[in-house]
Amino acid sequence: MAGKKRSKKDPPEFRNPQLGDALQTQDMAAVAFALRHGPTVVPMMRPGQRDNPRDGGEVWTYRDPKTGDVALLLFSDATHQPEALPPTVALQSPGWLRAFLGTHEAEITTVFLDIAGPHPMQATPADLIAALDA
């Protein structure tokens, strides 16, 4: 049933349909709007502890063994995450994403959105920070 409401016992949906639509058009303004107003699916090495709100877990990043460059991978939907990545994901808020990028901007070389498709996009951390601050 398309109009069915989720009950409190249904698991959360790990997706941002607005971000998926924006990636489909490859419109950076629409991507920026979606990132500012909705969650982002982030792969996690270790999830945060539920009983400790200060423990946000450990975000998974990719380090190129040849160059040492670090990439952050973000997804519009958990189903777009490649199987080679850790299976744990978190649904992070725009505020979290802005804080994370601000803290790690010097380390992260590039950010990939839906790297395995269906509509991948690449940006610098500075570009995403500017989009989130707009």
Rank of each mutant, 00 (worst) to 15 (best):
G3D: 10
K4E: 03
K4G: 00
K5R: 14
K5S: 14
R6A: 08
R6M: 11
S7R: 04
K8A: 10
K8C: 00
K9G: 00
P11V: 12
P11G: 09
P12M: 02
E13Y: 03
E13L: 09
R15N: 14
N16E: 09
P17G: 08
Q18L: 08
L19D: 03
L23V: 12
Q24M: 05
T25P: 05
Q26L: 02
Q26V: 01
Q26F: 02
D27Q: 10
M28W: 15
M28I: 12
M28C: 00
A30N: 00
V31S: 08
A32G: 15
F33T: 09
F33S: 06
F33E: 09
F33R: 07
A34G: 12
L35M: 15
L35R: 07
H37L: 01
H37Q: 11
H37D: 02
H37R: 08
P39Y: 01
P39L: 01
T40D: 09
T40G: 09
T40M: 12
V41I: 08
P43C: 11
M45N: 03
M45Q: 03
R46E: 13
P47A: 02
P47G: 02
Q49P: 02
R50N: 08
N52A: 01
P53S: 05
P53R: 06
G56N: 15
G56A: 12
G57M: 07
E58K: 12
W60P: 05
W60M: 14
Y62T: 10
Y62A: 15
R63F: 03
D64G: 04
P65M: 06
K66W: 05
T67I: 07
G68Q: 06
G68C: 06
G68W: 04
D69E: 13
D69A: 13
V70W: 09
V70N: 05
A71P: 04
L74Y: 03
F75C: 11
F75A: 08
F75L: 06
S76V: 06
H80P: 02
P82I: 12
P86S: 13
P86M: 13
P87F: 07
T88E: 13
T88M: 06
A90W: 08
A90M: 09
A90K: 07
Q92M: 12
Q92F: 01
P94V: 01
W96E: 03
W96K: 04
W96P: 01
W96H: 06
W96N: 05
L97H: 05
A99I: 00
A99C: 01
A99G: 01
F100W: 03
L101S: 11
G102Y: 06
T103E: 14
T103Q: 08
E105G: 02
A106D: 12
A106M: 04
E107T: 10
I108S: 04
T109D: 14
T110H: 07
V111C: 15
V111Y: 08
F112I: 06
F112S: 15
L113M: 12
D114P: 04
D114C: 04
D114F: 04
A116V: 05
G117K: 10
P118C: 13
H119A: 14
H119D: 14
H119L: 05
M121R: 14
M121N: 03
M121P: 02
A123S: 05
A123P: 00
A123M: 07
T124Q: 10
P125G: 11
A126R: 13
A126D: 13
A126Y: 03
D127N: 02
D127V: 01
D127L: 00
D127M: 03
L128D: 00
I129Y: 03
A130Q: 13
A131R: 01
L132V: 05
